[in-house]
Amino acid sequence: MNIDSQAMENILLVDDDPLTLALLATTLRQAGYTVVTAVSGLEALVAAEREAPDLAMLDIDLPDMSGLELAIKLRDLQGLPFMFLSAISDAHIVETAVEYGAVGYMVKPVDISSLMATLKASLARAEEIKRLRKTESHLTNALATGREISIATGVLMAHYRTDRHTAFDIMRSQARSQRKTIREIANAVLSAEETINQFHTAIQAKKKNV
């Protein structure tokens, strides 16, 4: 089999059958992939944290936990995309795998040509998911940052009866002088405002009790 020099993705291969594990690992390595193997769910979790693979290929039946359980852990803990290998061709299992977020599903014994095609499609889908998550994360951070700065600017405008440009310019100057980001200064303003409001509430309550 020719080695594809462009295929350098790291695959986490998990199967408790030593023969199947060895065959698949050898095949994938010959195709140019980096392969990390594991024979149990716990071993897979440790390997995933250590190696940071691009995709996990999981057997449905494992000795310490099901492949579905392992998939959830890998997804929730590390955001790792996964596909399943199973000796059972069951519509319900396939449907469940899709619901869990699997990017691929193959029935054993695996046909090598089908395996490579499915793997490439799964890796493409995994890369798409990673890009979407990264974009979503950046968007969330940007929106959060913009919201915090906007609110903090409004707080300064209200307290010091100034315009928005002046309030923002003051925060930017403070950020430069303190070697902090504008977001950090905005958070400090909001934190101070919250503390003042707490004191105000406490003082008002005390006045009522006098």
Results as ranks from 00 to 15, higher is better:
Lys130Tyr: 03
Ala186Asp: 01
Ser86Ala: 11
Lys120Ser: 07
Thr37His: 04
Ala144Lys: 10
Asn141Lys: 13
Arg131Asn: 06
Asp4Arg: 14
Thr181Cys: 01
Lys207Cys: 05
Ile196Lys: 12
Asp90Pro: 04
Leu70Thr: 08
Ala38Thr: 03
Lys108Thr: 12
Leu190Arg: 01
His200Cys: 07
Thr166Arg: 14
Glu193Thr: 07
Leu123Tyr: 04
Val110Pro: 09
Ile11Gln: 03
Ile129Leu: 14
Asp169His: 08
Leu119Glu: 07
Lys130Met: 05
Ala31Gly: 11
Leu119Met: 09
Lys73Trp: 02
Gly101Ala: 08
Pro109Gly: 11
Ala167Tyr: 05
Val39Gln: 10
Glu69Asp: 14
Leu190Asp: 02
Lys134Gly: 07
Leu23Val: 13
Ala202Glu: 08
Arg29Asp: 07
Ala91Ile: 10
Ala87Lys: 08
Gln198Ile: 06
Ala7Trp: 04
Leu12Cys: 10
Pro53Gly: 08
Leu58Ile: 07
Arg29Thr: 12
Tyr105Gln: 07
Ile112His: 07
Ala38Leu: 06
Asp64Pro: 01
Leu42Glu: 15
Ser137Gln: 14
Leu58Arg: 08
Ser191Ala: 15
Phe168Cys: 02
Phe199Leu: 15
Arg161Trp: 05
Glu49Pro: 00
Leu190Glu: 02
Ala124Tyr: 09
Ser177Gln: 11
Pro63Gln: 05
Leu123Cys: 04
Thr195Ile: 12
His165Ser: 09
Val46Pro: 00
Ala144His: 10
Asp61Val: 11
Leu13Val: 08
Ile60Lys: 01
Met65Ile: 08
Leu45Met: 12
Ile93Ser: 11
Ile151Leu: 14
Glu69Ser: 15
Lys134Ile: 04
Val39Ala: 14
Ser114Met: 11
Lys208Val: 09
Glu148Val: 00
Leu21His: 08
Val107Thr: 15
Gly67Arg: 09
Glu9His: 12
Lys206Ile: 09
Glu51Trp: 06
Arg125Gln: 15
Gly101Phe: 06
Ala52Ser: 14
Ala52Gly: 03
Val110Trp: 06
Thr153Phe: 00
Met65Ala: 04
Leu190Ser: 02
Lys208Tyr: 06
Ile11His: 03
Ala117Leu: 12
Ile185Arg: 01
Leu80Pro: 01
Asp169Ala: 15
Thr195Asp: 10
Ile72Tyr: 06
Thr20Met: 10
Leu80Phe: 03
Glu95Leu: 09
Ser114Gln: 13
Ser89Trp: 05
Asn197Met: 12
Asn141His: 14
Ile112Ala: 08
Ile88Asp: 06
Leu45Asp: 01
Asp76Tyr: 07
Pro81Met: 04
Ala124Met: 06
Ile60Ser: 02
Asp54Ile: 05
Tyr160Glu: 05
Arg147Ile: 10
Arg133Ala: 13
Thr181Met: 02
Lys134His: 14
Glu43Arg: 09
Ala48Glu: 00
His200Asp: 13
Ala48Phe: 01
Ala142Met: 08
Glu128Phe: 10
Ala47Arg: 03
Ala205Ser: 12
Lys207Trp: 10
Gly41His: 07
